[in-house]
């Protein structure tokens, strides 16, 4: 990207399009982000404002050397704080309770998130039920209620779509999408995995490319798998149980590699796993695990058939660290 865009952004003179380019560059890699953070820190520390109005300390100073007044000031601040808090609560309440009022004025977007370590159930305005797996977010906007049934998924979710032939239901993700004709299915599309998996349980769904063109239809019991690095789509018959068992708190691994399992466990429990042992990544595990058990029990189960040993290190303000050794 043109370096001058960074400077323009820092100086606050970048156009809307340039800002967009800037954020694209920023999101490209952690390296870009860190580089910019360093630049911005220097920028902020070397920044001076021209005090044209000539504001002086005496304009803003609290009354001093007069203890009585000071107490008055303190209680004033305290009362003001309560008052501001009440306004704040009012504003939040207004947002939650009366938010729908301006629904038709502009397309407002809603986002539901299941944080790492949690699952979330939601019912969309049309009655469609969605269960979000850990570390997943689902977005849709206010046009949803007026018939444009479109959601954007980052992560994994199970959909039970309300039938409505006139208004097809569309799920979009970073890679592929799905158009639905009243049905239930599972989609896994965590952006960091650079993969997309759709598994159809019943009904019928069409597989869409990024631009919304239908690539293929799926039959019940079929799974479509897309990998960004090979850019290929593979459709095959599967045991659907395996792909949807997570919603019942069960998870089935059929000969999965340990590094894949580690990634899953990181999401369910919001922990960070570091695999230290040579060769453990490539070991495979076969079995069903109960997800809602404490993590050490899960790890003990894995230990039975693999060479896994583990150590749990709790950390303040950060996800717990687990070494696999």
């Amino acid at each position: 990207m043109d370096n001058n865009i960074i400077i323009k952004y820092l100086q606050g003179t970048a156009s809307e399009a340039e800002i967009e380019t800037f954020f694209q560059w920023l999101d490209e890699s952690e390296k870009h982000r860190n580089e910019f953070i360093e630049l911005k820190k220097i920028w902020a520390l070397t920044s001076k404002f021209e005090n044209k109005e000539g504001v002086s300390w005496s304009d803003i100073q609290p009354e001093f050397s007069k203890p009585v007044k000071k107490r008055f000031l303190y209680s004033f601040i305290k009362n003001a704080a309560v008052f501001i808090l009440l306004i704040g609560i009012g504003a939040i309440a207004q947002y939650f309770f009366f938010g729908e009022k301006d629904e038709h004025v502009y397309a407002r977007s809603f986002a539901v998130t299941a944080p790492a370590g949690q699952m979330t159930n939601i019912e969309l305005p049309d009655g469609t039920l969605v269960m979000l797996n850990s570390g997943t977010s689902l977005q849709y906007n206010s046009e949803f209620s007026s018939g444009k049934r479109e959601v954007y998924l980052e992560g994994e979710a199970f959909f039970d779509v309300q039938k409505d032939v006139e208004h097809p239901f569309t799920v979009k993700s970073d890679y592929l999408g799905v158009r639905v004709y009243g049905t239930s299915f599972n989609i896994q599309a965590y952006p960091e995995d650079r993969e997309f998996t759709a598994t159809l349980i019943e009904g019928s769904i069409g597989l869409l490319d990024k631009n919304g063109y239908e690539l293929s239809k799926l039959e019940p019991g079929e799974k479509a798998f897309f990998n960004d690095s090979t850019a290929s789509i593979e459709i095959r018959k599967v045991d659907t149980e395996m792909y949807t068992s997570w919603k019942d708190g069960l998870v089935t691994f059929r000969n999965e590699k340990m590094d894949y399992i580690a990634k899953q466990i990181e999401r369910w429990y919001n922990v960070e796993i570091i695999i230290q042992k040579e060769g453990l990544c490539d070991e495979r595990y076969f079995g069903t695990i109960l997800k809602n058990k404490p993590i050490d029990q899960i790890l003990d189960v894995l230990k039975l058939t693999t060479s896994l040993e583990y150590e749990i290190v709790p950390r303040a303000n950060k996800p717990t660290l687990i070494y696999w050794k």
Binding site: L10, G12, K40, W43, A44, L45, S47, K48, F49, E50, N51, V55, S56, W57, S58, Q61, F64
Partner: peptide, 30 residues
């Protein structure tokens, strides 16, 4: 009071400048 006046004069511009980098609204930043 005098000591504080000096501190204010020496630092006000750069603290506002710093805030402006994160809060573009000048009144808010000030």
């Amino acid at each position: 009071e005098h000591a504080f006046k000096i501190i204010f004069e020496d630092n006000y511009d750069r603290i506002v400048g710093f805030c402006l980098q994160f809060i573009p609204d000048r009144e808010e930043a000030k």
